[in-house]
């Protein structure tokens, strides 16, 4: 993946070291940054994060990351949201009082409907692909990924859903819409399958960079 640079947006929500090291493991140059201008020069953006939706949005705005992600996506620059970063791509979250998200994907984030099951949903869960995508290339359907979450986006359009998993309800745990990609699970904690997915994302960035 020579030449591709990926910026991991560091806005103080969760540990980013594993994401950084996972990209390095698959031979991709990455940089954690709090600087939107520096991130602008990378071929791909990763929006990670764990924690509260509202606090995350406040911090994104404070660093100018909201405009960065919107601008990049509008110009076709690949973006990968992970866990909370995936949820932030949507319009709103019901976490706490209703909070506005980046609104790049239609739909709202809501609490998992899992009567009798433990929340947060934590552990290895199989993911069934709904369609083929460069993001999940080479990863068989029903491959388990590692999840830690209490909420999940509910995309308005089923056509953007790449994969589904189940905790009580069936939920969309991977999406792709043009340059925007999002996964609810943690690829950086999902062993070989997760590393493959991150390598695939770097490939998407390389092709987008070559086409630009």
């Amino acid at each position: 993946m020579s030449g591709v640079r990926i910026a991991i947006l560091d806005y103080g929500m969760g540990n980013l070291r594993s994401v950084e090291k996972a990209f390095e493991r698959v031979g991709v140059a990455v940089e954690r940054t709090t600087d939107a201008e520096r991130a602008e020069r990378a071929e791909g953006l990763v929006l990670p994060g764990v924690g509260a939706f509202g606090e995350a949005m406040r911090r994104l705005r404070a660093l100018g990351f909201d405009e960065l992600v919107r601008g990049r996506a509008a110009r076709g620059g690949p973006v990968l949201g992970i866990c909370l970063g995936y949820q932030l791509l949507f319009e709103s979250s019901e976490e706490g009082s209703a909070t506005e998200g980046l609104g790049l994907l239609e739909g709202a984030v809501g609490r998992l409907d899992a009567p009798g099951l433990k929340i947060p949903h934590m552990g290895w869960e199989r993911v069934d692909w709904s369609q083929a995508s460069p993001l999940v290339d080479g990863i068989p359907t029903a491959t388990p990924f590692y999840f830690v979450h209490s909420l999940t986006p509910r995309p308005a359009e089923e056509r953007i859903v790449l994969g589904r998993s189940r905790h009580g309800e069936s939920f969309a745990c991977a999406v792709a819409s043009g340059p925007l990609h999002g996964v609810q699970f943690h690829p950086e904690k999902s062993s070989a399958a997760g590393l493959r997915l991150l390598g695939n994302f770097a490939g998407i960035c390389a092709r987008a960079g070559a086409a630009a």
């Binding site: 594993s18 904690k189 062993s191 590393l195």
Partner: peptide
């Protein structure tokens, strides 16, 4: 460990 191991 976090540098080298990609499971929780």
């Amino acid at each position: 460990t976090a540098d080298d191991v990609f499971i929780p």
